Amino acid sequence: MKNDGDAPQSPLAEELHALRAEVAQLNAHRFVRIHNSIPRLLMFNLARGLAFGLGTVLGASVLLSLVAWALSQVEFLPIIGEWVSEILRQIEASVE
Rank of each mutant, 00 (worst) to 15 (best):
Met1Leu: 15
Met1Arg: 13
Lys2Trp: 15
Lys2Asp: 11
Asp4Ala: 09
Asp4Gln: 05
Asp4Thr: 15
Gly5Val: 01
Gly5Arg: 01
Asp6Glu: 12
Asp6Ile: 11
Asp6Arg: 13
Gln9Leu: 15
Ser10Lys: 07
Ser10Glu: 11
Ser10Arg: 07
Pro11Val: 03
Leu12Thr: 08
Leu12Gln: 15
Leu12Gly: 08
Ala13Met: 07
Ala13Trp: 06
Glu14Pro: 02
Glu15Ser: 12
Glu15Gly: 10
Leu16Val: 13
Leu16Phe: 12
Leu16His: 14
His17Cys: 10
His17Asn: 14
Ala21Gln: 12
Ala21His: 13
Glu22Asp: 09
Glu22Pro: 02
Val23Pro: 03
Val23Glu: 06
Val23Ile: 14
Ala24Ser: 12
Ala24Lys: 09
Ala24Met: 07
Leu26His: 02
Leu26Asp: 04
Asn27Trp: 02
Asn27Ala: 06
Ala28Trp: 03
Ala28Glu: 06
His29Lys: 12
Arg30Tyr: 13
Val32Pro: 02
Ile34Val: 04
His35Thr: 09
His35Pro: 01
Ile38Trp: 14
Arg40Val: 00
Arg40Met: 04
Leu41Arg: 09
Leu41Ser: 06
Met43Ile: 05
Met43Pro: 00
Met43Gln: 14
Phe44Asn: 06
Asn45Asp: 12
Asn45His: 12
Leu46Gln: 11
Ala47Leu: 15
Arg48Thr: 02
Arg48Leu: 02
Gly49Trp: 04
Gly49Ile: 00
Gly49Lys: 08
Leu50Asp: 06
Phe52Ile: 00
Gly53Trp: 08
Leu54Cys: 08
Gly55Lys: 01
Gly55His: 01
Gly55Gln: 01
Thr56Gly: 12
Thr56Lys: 13
Val57Phe: 15
Gly59Cys: 05
Gly59His: 04
Ala60Trp: 15
Ser61Met: 13
Ser61Pro: 11
Leu64Met: 08
Leu64Arg: 08
Leu66Gly: 09
Leu66Cys: 09
Leu66Tyr: 15
Val67Gly: 03
Ala68Glu: 10
Ala68Ile: 14
Trp69Thr: 14
Ala70Tyr: 01
Ala70Pro: 00
Ser72Asp: 05
Gln73Val: 04
Gln73Gly: 09
Gln73Leu: 15
Glu75His: 14
Leu77Thr: 00
Pro78Val: 00
Pro78Asp: 01
Ile80Met: 05
Ile80Phe: 03
Gly81His: 01
Glu82His: 10
Val84Cys: 07
Val84Arg: 15
Ser85His: 09
Glu86Pro: 02
Ile87Ser: 05
Leu88Asn: 11
Leu88Pro: 05
Arg89Gly: 03
Arg89Asn: 02
Gln90Arg: 10
Ile91Ala: 07
Ile91His: 06
Ile91Arg: 08
Ile91Pro: 02
Ser94His: 06
Ser94Cys: 02
Ser94Tyr: 08
Ser94Ile: 06
Val95Met: 06
Val95Lys: 13
Glu96His: 13
Glu96Pro: 08
